[in-house]
Design a protein around this nucleic acid. Structure first.
Lengths: 246, 246
DNA sequence: CTCTCTATTTGTATGAGTATATCTGGCGGG
DNA sequence: CCCGCCAGATATACTCATACAAATAGAGAG
């Protein structure tokens, strides 16, 4: 690790020191720069190496520990936990993951998980939604008609649609999970719309999902959502369908 | 500070102060004792109220913030975030949830989520497992034959089986999620085996899942797992099937 | 192999000082 | 007279340095 008190690994400006440090170290851990089980160095040593106080360093440790990346005991020191114990679905962790070098395999895993969650969500939404949910979904669709998915407004509208759909499931656990995953997946789609000009018009499949839900046909809603995800995946530049099937 | 007023922090003795305090406050927040958006009091005020140093109190704040329960800014103070931003699938959060007053509705949500995840996992495992995965699953089953589910060994064997199954999906995100949810759900089943004598022998449905996976029949594996979960749910004392269907 | 003892590391406490966002009030324009 | 904008005051979290306490892994005696 680089020495010198002035390195302060470049982090977003608005963040406090402990947040920025946690982010920096978190990205390093997620990128696999340290082997699991490997020691992390003493507090005094590390805090001095990063040019921060021991207090700030310790608060960063608390954050990373809370997310399952580290564990520390007196005399034993601080160690990186086995990958299995990491909270991979933590939104912040996902953000760090994509800020570093996104692991291709994990992105595929996320898509696959989304492929499990969202069709089931559509199915549930079809039976449980009320008029208000439907109105919110329509609002999102209207936004998608006005703005392209390459614009910020278009992406927000898309997100509104999916959020409304999830809320209609009346399942808090599902909502919590899906928002994390969807946000992460959407982060990857940024590249898609930045690099390619026009993948395809995503409206038809969205409307198919909406109609199936509106008419309260669970099985049709599931199928429509599966189709939507299949098409979205097909547009991804770097992910190949063969990989998806493994 | 004054040790006479060690009132609220009645937490497990093995934990450090910041952990215990985070747990105590986390349980309070999850129980809905404070309204979202409500202020949380200043550091000096609160730390003195709990009879701990500001250092320990602040580290507790970092933990709760990392899990999405709080946010704090200078001058504005520390506030409870809207429930939507909480990281409900965090294992520690789930543990706190059941340590407090478990919300019946959320338990149902978890069951429902499990009902979405595990059948899909079984389906994937059926196509991707190798001989080693199968050996581990059989090992778990053997343990379940030797020990009853009311014993610690029996529960461990059951967990081994499900863990092996999940690993066979080759999907890290799925593993991370399912272990949290399954652990939480299993936590609720403790009551079942403590209070009732003998619900039923869970082996047949487990073996059905194993056989479907072993013979690489994804759809059969999914069906078998759905049946397993249906039976497990039926054994629950406090959860009624009608609630599940809503 | 078990027990004890110690030395290392994290954990806790305290006080001083900094940074930043909110709030207040004044100023100028409408 | 009212409204919007800007600058300073102010409350609050944030950072730092230092000292001491607690716990435990590991060495060493028995």
């Amino acid at each position: 690790m680089k020495k010198g008190a002035d390195d302060k690994a470049a982090a977003p400006r608005g963040l406090r020191i402990h947040q920025a440090l946690a982010r920096t170290l978190g990205i390093a851990i997620l990128s696999g720069e340290h082997a699991p089980g490997e020691g992390f160095g003493g507090e005094i040593e590390q805090s001095e190496a990063f040019g921060v106080s021991r207090t700030a360093y310790r608060e960063a440790m608390r954050i990373l520990t809370a997310k399952g990346l580290l564990e520390s005991r007196p005399k034993a020191g601080t160690h990186i936990t086995p990958r299995r114990r990491w909270n991979l679905l933590d939104p912040e962790l996902l953000e760090w993951m994509f800020a570093g070098k996104p692991d291709e395999g994990f992105i595929i895993d996320l898509f696959e998980l989304r492929g499990v969650i969202e069709p089931a969500a559509a199915e549930l939404a079809a039976t449980r939604h009320d008029v208000d949910d439907l109105a919110r979904m329509d609002e999102g669709l209207a936004g998608m008609r006005r703005h392209d998915l390459s614009t910020a407004e278009g992406q927000a509208a898309d997100q509104d649609f999916h959020t409304a759909l999830l809320d209609a499931t009346r399942n808090e656990a599902l909502v919590s999970l899906a928002t994390s995953v969807a946000a992460a997946v959407r982060w990857t789609t940024r590249f898609k719309h930045q690099h390619r000009k026009h993948p395809r018009d995503p409206l038809p499949e969205h409307e198919a999902v909406r109609d199936a839900i509106a008419s309260r046909r669970p099985e049709a809603a599931r199928k429509a959502m599966e189709e939507l995800l299949r098409l979205a995946l097909a547009d991804m530049p770097n992910v190949k369908m063969e990989d998806y099937g493994r």
